[in-house]
Design a protein around this nucleic acid. Structure first.
Length: 493
RNA sequence: GGCGGCGUGGCCAAGUGGUAAGGCAAGGGUUUGCAAAACCCUCAUUCAUCGGUUCAAAUCCGGUCGCCGCCUCCA
């Protein structure tokens, strides 16, 4: 039984999609006006993992994630660079998609762009206007929050106007100061679309409602995003959507915690918009592999705050290597199985053939190392069913790695196969590949082979000075040699 | 001012009533020509702090201290 924390109730609820095994999931995507910083990685990785787990649990997931390609920030930045908004957005959307791919984030089922859904937004605003909920002023079209009794239901923000002292601007034309823009009239030179009220562009919040309306009738099961989006963005989405349809917009509101940055090794890393520090994702990729960064994100529960510092990425890199090494060791055991011999033991087949949702608590008795294999699967599911507790899931994986390493010497091929299959499968749910990333730029395998052969000759002749020199110098460029028996293998980092 | 979150070993981080998971780092040992990897052992009588409830609290309640987020664009 899967339990999900929803921000609206501030509690965990048993997950029950509206429509059997179909899950409609919408996650707010980026505004593409600049390169990704590490903060962009967290929601992408978190919700990608949630999507993967839901699929593992047997749900058919429609995963929608938008690209905001028109808004004030884009207009400003495009002006600074002297290029069109479309060109700017296109450039940074490409960058975003490449960076997310490096993190193992799968493409959404649907990736709608705001500028391709202007008419859907206009239709929605017209609907709201016809219901008397939207009104027009000299600056644009607004949503009248006083017409939506439930305003504030999601975020718990009070709706009285007493605390206006902290508001930046008050607009005397607005009926309530919390009213938000559905449509903004354009100023000269700004991108604009025709509308019944005048040329302009959509407000920020309307796109998510309109696009989820187009693709699933504004009836979401899960709506996700960063914690900062809870208010006002999601509160406003909820208001305009439910005001239009009269139906619950989303049953589970999920918000990932923020990444904060801190001093590390005496060096201060500032969080901010200034360029060129380790805050940028591509800078972080220089500290560790993207997969170690993904591992680092999953090492903390998604709702908790996450501290960023380079040493934690290095730590994650060490951790993930331990997993790779185990998978490789199991692989060698499997390779030793005789040709034509049956690989998968009965209990693994039984596990694999059972409906994922029913695996928990089911009877998967297996003797010997099989008990560990089943335990990994069971504990993994148990952890993930508890509001996607990935740190707990990783702990189960490390317990298993330890057990596997201990049992390795005496392990038979079938158990090794089962162990490997289970391990690879749960890693896959977390979006972590089971093998080391192929290293590039260290030189071809042929050159390393050549040096290793020379070293092997030296070792045969007991010329350890030369053999150690070769090993140390290769290590210095990231090639780690491992002598096992008479054979030398290597890994590249 | 309003709403919310966090504070667990050197560094991270699970754990929301039953007597402290896991990772990284560190030290000792086994193995190895030496390494690497792996394995074994050690590493929080204690969970910011004070008080309360309870047979029992890191976990519940109240106070205090510290840090952070949202209320304005922000993942």
């Amino acid at each position: 039984m899967l339990n999900i924390y929803t921000s609206e109730k501030r509690d965990k609820l048993t997950f029950k999609p509206r429509n059997g095994k179909e899950v409609m999931m919408y996650v707010c995507g980026p505004t593409v006006y600049d390169s990704c910083h590490i903060g962009h990685a967290r929601p992408a990785v978190v919700f990608d993992t949630i999507r993967r787990y839901l699929e593992y649990a047997g749900y058919a997931v429609t995963f929608m994630s938008n690209i905001t390609d028109i808004d004030d920030k884009i207009i400003r930045r495009a002006g600074e660079l002297g290029i069109s908004c479309a060109a700017l957005a296109s450039r940074y959307q490409d960058e975003y998609e490449a960076d997310m791919a490096a993190l193992g984030v799968r493409s959404p089922t649907i990736r709608p762009k705001a500028t391709e859904h202007i008419q859907d937004m206009i239709d929605l605003i017209k609907d709201l206007e016809s219901k008397g909920i939207a009104y027009c002023t000299s600056r644009g079209v607004w949503f009248d929050v006083s017409k939506f009794a439930d305003y504030g239901r999601l975020s718990g923000k009070v709706t009285d106007d007493d605390s206006t002292e902290h508001r930046v601007e008050t607009d005397p034309e607005k009926r309530n100061q919390q009213d938000f823009a559905l449509w903004k009239f354009s100023k000269p030179g700004e991108p604009e679309w025709e509308s019944p009220w005048g040329a302009g562009r959509p407000g920020w919040h309307i796109e998510c409602s309109a696009m989820s309306g187009k693709y699933c009738g504004m009836e979401l099961d899960i709506h996700g995003g960063g914690a900062d989006l809870c208010f006002p963005h999601h509160e406003n989405e909820l208001a305009q959507s439910e005001a239009a349809t009269g139906k619950i917009f989303a049953n589970y509101w999920m918000h990932n915690g923020f990444i904060t940055v801190a001093k590390d090794d005496g060096e201060e890393i500032k969080m901010g918009k200034s360029k060129g520090n380790a805050f940028w994702l591509r800078e972080a990729f220089k500290v560790s592999s993207p997969m170690a960064l993904r591992f680092w994100i999953l090492g903390t529960h998604y709702r908790m705050p996450l501290l960023y510092k380079p040493s934690l990425l290095k730590s994650a890199e060490s951790s993930i290597k331990r997993i790779y090494t185990c998978v490789e060791a199991l692989g060698e055991k499997i390779a030793a199985i005789a040709e034509g011999e049956e690989k998968a033991p009965a209990y693994l087949i039984k596990w694999g053939e059972t409906a994922p949702a029913e695996r928990m608590g089911a009877d998967f008795v297996a003797a010997g190392f099989g008990a560990e294999v089943i335990k990994l699967g069971t504990e993994f599911i148990s952890a993930m069913n508890d509001d996607f507790n990935t740190p707990k899931a990783l702990a189960a994986i490390f317990d298993f790695v330890n057990a596997a390493n201990s049992a390795l010497a005496a392990m038979g091929g079938q158990d090794a196969y089962a162990a490997s299959q289970m391990l690879i499968s749960v890693l896959g749910v977390l979006g972590l590949p089971p093998e080391r990333p192929a290293a590039a730029g260290v030189g071809g395998d042929d050159y390393i082979r050549l040096l290793v052969d020379i070293r092997t000759e030296a070792r045969v002749k007991k010329d350890f000075a030369l053999s150690d020199e070769i090993r140390d110098k290769l290590a210095a460029i990231g090639v780690q040699l491992n002598d096992k028996g008479g054979e030398t293998t290597w890994t590249v980092s």
